[in-house]
Design a protein around this nucleic acid. Structure first.
Lengths: 218, 218
DNA sequence: TAAATTTGTTAGATTCGTCTAAGTTATTAT
DNA sequence: ATAATAACTTAGACGAATCTAACAAATTTA
């Protein structure tokens, strides 16, 4: 079993991994708000445990084992978020903090029960995929709303970089997963969009917002 | 805020306290399965924090502050147990382990929600009182079944020393909180009792069992 | 390409919670 | 009442996870 701390490093490595699966020590240090030397020594420790590939001055990569462990922690996190929203009536902007703690519980029974109560969900409340019991993620390809063109109609499928403030912002605009969005115009200048959704009058979305919204084309 | 570890010491002190509110370092050491010197230094630390009264070679006592903090941890534990049983359909013998972990979460919101969903319960699934939001316990006086006499009819109100095995034993005998128990005979020799309950034929309960069952006289 | 900057590493210190070994005080038993 | 035992304390070590200071390598910029 891994410590609370180790689990957090694994999760961060997983979440930061680019298409090559590589993460720089510096990125990791910033993400965790932990100084580089600490990260460095933890990477050596995780390398000892065969969870991370570590070589001096090279990017970090999770091993298959490390990726699986990370996936299982993320699974617990996302199942928990789903449970909090669906069974305990929390808002999608409230659940991250709580799930950050519950994800570290050691109780297969507890998470199996949650999974069952939820009907074995595959997506969390923000539209992110829930890893399966082997830690694997079934990646679905969505497009960023910011990559869509005027005239298209799309459905909001997932939200990324889900900070508290961003989710509250979406709440205030009544934008939810599943919202059907029609793109009226796209500004050349700043990439902002005018859109309509939910029978409402036109709303303007900045590029900062639209690149964090993942959509499915209809 | 107190650490996970400190919370466990406070809880153990609370649970071990006798009528004088005193606990010996040795008892505490045994309960926590932590060696005496470690307990000793932790007591000094908690004394620094004004959570424990500590004097060399004297019994330990929680301060008012310490008792409050302990009560609040126990509150979270018992609310959690109630939630697991009532809302997640766990058995009363399954919830202790999970609650031992969840009790250390730092999220007032989470526990308030649980409390609300449960309708502000005052007893946990084993009949133990749930401390209020100030950490205070509303002690109710029940009698031990072992102190009752032949001919009496009582209602099972609470179970103490609730180990896994003991609760499973009660399950196997179909003894639940609320069961109405008629005491047929009491053995002089070993204190065992023959009782009937739940329309069943007579069952024999050893003294070891009956002294862990708290009852209300009817 | 050489200097400046950023990134990464090493070395050594600190805090927390634990331990063992050894000594001291209190309690129990003879 | 003294010896034996049990309870308690002190001293010192250790691993985990963190830090700062100083140095080394890689990258960027001039």
């Amino acid at each position: 079993m891994h410590s609370y701390t180790e689990e957090n490093y694994l999760k961060a490595l997983f979440n930061l991994a680019n298409d090559k699966g590589e993460v720089s020590p510096n990125e990791l240090s910033k993400r965790l708000a932990i100084k580089m030397p600490t990260v460095n020594s933890m990477m050596k420790k995780l390398a000892e445990k065969k969870l991370v590939h570590y070589e001096s001055y090279k990017p970090l990569r999770l091993t298959d084992k490390g990726r699986k462990e990370a996936g299982l922690v993320i699974r617990k996190h996302r199942l928990t978020e789903m449970f909090l929203v669906q069974k305990m009536d929390f808002g999608w902007e409230q659940v991250h903090e709580i799930a950050e703690q519950i994800e570290h519980l050691h109780s297969p029974l507890f998470f199996e029960k949650i999974d069952e109560m939820l009907g074995y969900p595959t997506l969390d409340p923000h539209g992110s995929p829930i890893p399966d019991k082997t830690g694997k993620i079934d990646w679905v390809h969505y497009e960023k709303l910011s990559d869509c063109k005027a005239g298209e109609t799309v459905k909001l499928a997932a939200v990324i970089q889900t900070t508290d403030e961003f989710l509250k912002f979406l709440n205030s605009r009544e934008l939810h997963l599943g919202s059907k969005i029609k793109i009226k115009t796209v500004e050349r200048f700043d990439g902002s969009m005018v859109v309509t959704y939910n029978k409402k009058t036109a709303e303007s979305l900045s590029h900062t917002v639209s690149e964090r919204l993942l959509v499915e084309k209809l």
